[in-house]
């Protein structure tokens, strides 16, 4: 599997896939996509990187432990739900606002953060599984 071509292409492929996964995540609310799919795409990206170049470069590139990313995602999703406390509406009620970034109106919502949380949980957990298995493969 670890041919020269594969090893050379893998980092670029991975970056592209991660970028694409974020795109899929963000368009998810209006078009096909969302946190689960985005997370799976990103996880496959890291798995490919791991197969091509070994596990330790992936771990270095991720910087955080994958399970930590997963945990942070769960926390983020839960916090997005808790936001509703401040507005005295039931847990996980979606809240919406529009902010202006560089003159462009951007819709922000707790639902978006919830979806990002889902994305991070899936990325973290699946990457962690894949890396753990790959480590056994090479170690």
């Amino acid at each position: 599997m670890r041919t020269l071509i594969f090893r050379t292409i893998a980092p670029y492929l991975t970056s592209l896939m991660v970028l694409f996964s974020i795109f899929v995540l963000l368009r998810g609310h209006n078009d096909p996509g969302g946190g689960f799919i985005g997370g799976l795409i990103a996880a496959s990206a890291f798995a490919i990187y791991g197969i091509a170049c070994g596990v330790s470069p992936v771990r270095r590139a991720l910087y955080f432990h994958p399970m930590a990313i997963s945990g942070f995602g769960l926390l983020l999703a839960a916090l997005a739900g808790w936001m509703s406390l401040f507005f005295e509406v039931p847990f996980l009620t979606g809240l919406w606002t529009t902010v202006s970034i560089l003159g462009l109106p951007v819709d922000l919502s707790t639902v978006l953060f919830f979806d990002i949380g889902v994305y991070l949980v899936v990325v973290g957990a699946i990457t962690s599984i894949a890396l753990a298995l790959e480590e056994r493969e090479h170690g």
């Binding site: 689960f36 957990a125 699946i126 753990a132």
Partner: peptide, 17 residues
């Protein structure tokens, strides 16, 4: 089904390991 697919995958991985 969307969530079921992801969860059944993670359980499949768990069973495999």
């Amino acid at each position: 089904i969307l969530t079921a697919i992801v969860i059944s995958f993670s359980f499949f991985a768990f069973l495999l390991v």
